[in-house]
């Protein structure tokens, strides 16, 4: 051991730490973006990340932006809560009875499969340009994955577990409370993660669509003014919001699915 750092040591060091390499890749991408924005691309189209970051306060100082962001956050929260509650109730109702599963599951899958984006103008027509239409559109995207995974969680249960519980004298309620329900929890949380992805998509689509109010007004304005710094700033803030919400739900999923290791 002479303490000198050889190339081989460095190689082993990096090979053990994939996350470090990942970080380097991200840094390289940002550097590329920085270089491109500074030297190669017309500044009316692209702004370097350093400037976007230092100008974030300008985005917040633009009249109405903080309010629009706050409202978007609440729309996401409300749409997600509604999706979870209704999704769970419908999922249980459809999953627990063979007959209702047979009758309604095809309808649910059909609705899930239709491109809801085509009816976005209808949502605005019925619910107006305010938060109601965005929440409704978010729910229309978030609710189906939750229903489908809840149903799957109720139905994929190994028959032997039900037989075993029955042989030990479990009542119908006990079967639900101690067997079906805990079995469903991990898939329900997977559904919540997919539901969150859906809600984010639905709410943001509706926000971007309405160009006269909310986030869509500002993205349209920044685009028309060729102000990439503020546009990127606003988009980054929304992306950070999306990442944070996704991460919370993902962690919950991991936590509640701990026993699912076999």
């Amino acid at each position: 051991m002479n303490g000198a750092l050889t190339f081989r040591d460095l190689r082993v060091f990096m090979l053990r730490r994939a996350w470090l390499a990942r970080l380097l890749v991200i840094a390289a991408l940002f550097l590329l973006w920085e270089a491109a924005a500074r030297w190669w691309v017309d500044p009316i189209f692209l702004s370097p990340p350093s400037r976007v970051l230092t100008s974030l306060n300008e985005v917040f100082e633009t009249g109405g932006v903080p309010g629009a962001l706050r409202i978007t956050f609440w729309e996401l929260a409300v749409a997600f809560s509604i999706s979870v509650v209704i999704g769970l109730v419908v999922g249980l109702a459809v999953g627990l009875s063979r007959f209702s599963h047979r009758s309604f599951m095809p309808i649910i899958l059909l609705l899930y499969g239709t491109p809801q984006i085509t009816i976005l103008p209808l949502f605005i027509l019925y619910f107006g340009i305010g938060p109601a239409s965005k929440v409704a559109f978010g729910v229309s995207h978030g609710i189906f994955p939750i229903i489908v995974t809840t149903v799957a969680g109720v139905q994929n249960i190994k028959p032997i577990l039900m037989t075993a519980a029955r042989s030990m004298g479990a009542s119908r309620w006990q079967l639900f409370r101690w067997v079906i329900f805990p079995h469903m929890i991990p898939s329900f949380f997977s559904g919540m993660r997919l539901g969150m992805t859906g809600v984010l998509l639905g709410v943001l689509l509706a926000e971007l669509y309405v160009s006269t109010a909310g986030i869509g007004y500002f993205t349209t304005m920044f685009t028309q003014n060729f102000d990439p710094t503020k546009l990127l700033g606003l988009i980054s803030i929304l992306a950070a919001m999306a990442i944070a919400l996704n991460e919370i739900v993902r962690r919950a999923e991991v936590y509640f699915g701990r026993w699912r290791t076999d």
């Binding site: 890749v25 988009i235 992306a239 990442i243």
Partner: peptide
Amino acid sequence: LLAGIYSVPIILFLPLYILF
């Protein structure tokens, strides 16, 4: 890294694409 980016609603970047 790719899975992480995919989990962000990429439609958010539409205004940027329209600018470009």
